[in-house]
Amino acid sequence: MTVESKRIPPWYKQFWPWFLLGLLLSSIAVSTTYLVLSITTFDGMVEDNYYKRGLAINEVIEQDEHAARLGLRADLRIDDLTGDMTLDLSGEQRPERLYLALIFPTQGDRDLDLVLEHVRDGRYVGQVPRQLQHRWYMQLRPTQQAPAWRLTAEARLPTREAIALTPATQKDN
């Protein structure tokens, strides 16, 4: 009876060492990719000063109630070809200038602050710098800092219909 010695190939010619090294290298590559992405991309949804923002909710509620007491309501039309905005404000107050904040829900760098100038009898005009698409939140205020009232709306743009801006307290009912 002869025993033949089975020839074992060197380690670099076998399957399992390369399989285990491949798993290790792929996990390092994926981990490095996620690390770089987490460092370089900004998560705009995280509120860094949530306590101060929570205290300010009473001011926001007061602004909405004040707008409701004044009977304020606005209809906004945006021409998606030219970017012209026309706003008709009804109610007791008609300041010379209105400030419209267009807020994109998920990306803070797309937010816009626009100025609308009074032309006559509660009509205001302004200009949008670019064509708007997708869903937007809107806040209309008489001043930029510490406004006395505000009107809000949510709209999917572009639209041919007028966007109704009302006090937020009226939307809850």
Rank of each mutant, 00 (worst) to 15 (best):
D80K: 09
F19N: 09
I163W: 04
A101M: 08
R73F: 02
H134L: 07
L72S: 05
A148G: 12
A148H: 05
R110P: 11
W16K: 03
D43L: 00
E154D: 12
G22T: 15
D172T: 14
D64V: 00
A155C: 00
I57T: 10
E96S: 13
A162E: 06
W18G: 10
D111C: 08
R141A: 10
Y51N: 08
L72G: 03
L116K: 00
R7V: 12
K52N: 15
P105L: 00
G71C: 08
R69Y: 03
L37Q: 08
R69A: 15
Y137K: 14
G126Q: 06
R160N: 13
P95H: 09
P10A: 08
Y124M: 01
L98H: 11
T82Q: 02
P17K: 06
Q170C: 08
V128M: 11
A162S: 05
H66Q: 14
E65M: 09
P95N: 07
F15L: 13
T33Y: 14
P105F: 03
N173K: 14
S31W: 12
P129K: 06
L21A: 14
E47F: 09
R73Q: 13
R120A: 15
D113V: 14
R135K: 12
A101K: 13
L157W: 03
L70N: 04
R77T: 14
T32Y: 03
Y50P: 13
R94G: 10
L87C: 04
D43H: 13
L55Y: 03
L132W: 05
G71V: 10
Q63H: 09
I78M: 01
S27Y: 08
T32P: 00
D79N: 15
L98K: 02
L140R: 07
T169V: 15
M45Y: 07
T106L: 12
M1V: 10
L140D: 04
Q127I: 10
I103S: 00
I8G: 01
R94E: 13
R141G: 07
G44P: 06
Q93L: 04
Q145Y: 11
A68Y: 08
L89V: 08
T2I: 11
T82N: 07
G83D: 09
I61K: 02
A101D: 13
Q93G: 01
Y124Q: 03
S31V: 10
D109G: 10
A148L: 10
Y99L: 05
E96A: 14
